[in-house]
Amino acid sequence: MNLTGEEQVNELSKILLEVGSLLMSSGANSARIRITINRIAGAYGFDVDLLITHRALMLTIYDEEQDYFYSRLKRTSPHSANFRMVSGISRMSWKIVEENWDFDQVEQELARLKSLPHYPRWVVLVMVSAAGAAFCRVFGGVYLELLVTFVATFIGLFVRQEAVKKSFNPYLAIFFAAFVSSLIAGAALKLQIGENPEYAFATSVLYLIPGIPLINSLSDLLDGNIMNGIVRGVNGLMISFSIALGMIGAIVIYGI
């Protein structure tokens, strides 16, 4: 490609912001976003300064030879964990360094990563429900409670996926899921199905716990990205309260 300096910077900034916003919405922490973007920019011989926030990224590229600045802002897409994307971008960033990829190759790879399929819906439903049953088992539940947790998680997760598809507010979607799950597990508690139905009730909503926001929050705080750490922590707290509200709904209805 024969691009002038300015066109090159323009193109590079587009790629870097795309990479950054994909990483942010796929669940990477701030340090990883900064490292990855600096690595890619460094491979093309540019210095980059970054402002990373939860909902937008800003970057300035500086070309020393021509004393030329370029700044750009990009909004991140709604967050949903996708580690296949994080892993793919990490591999790509090393290939850019080691194999001297040009911009076209990078854009093709990004398009390929975006088109990668998620796991089929039924696999996700079954495996997450199995994980819920596994938590119940680790708590000390036996087979009947495991079954209750499995069913409660399955239907709850289904409700959440549907709510997300109908583009409800994300916290509301989690509230619906927690409410439905605790209604099902609460019925088992009310009717005293199994030996320890309270184990099933406690573990039926664990699939909703905001593990990524909370762990990323602490690791951002540890890295000194205090602002991002607080934002992620508050997000995790909001999710936790949505879960609690859903459970309270079921508790009030059953009077347990």
Partner: peptide
């Protein structure tokens, strides 16, 4: 051993939810 197994099942349940690469 029982716990070992179920802890692993819990981990891969979330791994699938987070859409990790199949090789991991």
């Amino acid at each position: 051993i029982d716990r070992w197994f179920w802890l692993g099942v819990g981990a891969i349940g979330f791994a699938i939810l987070f859409n990790v690469p199949r090789r991991t």
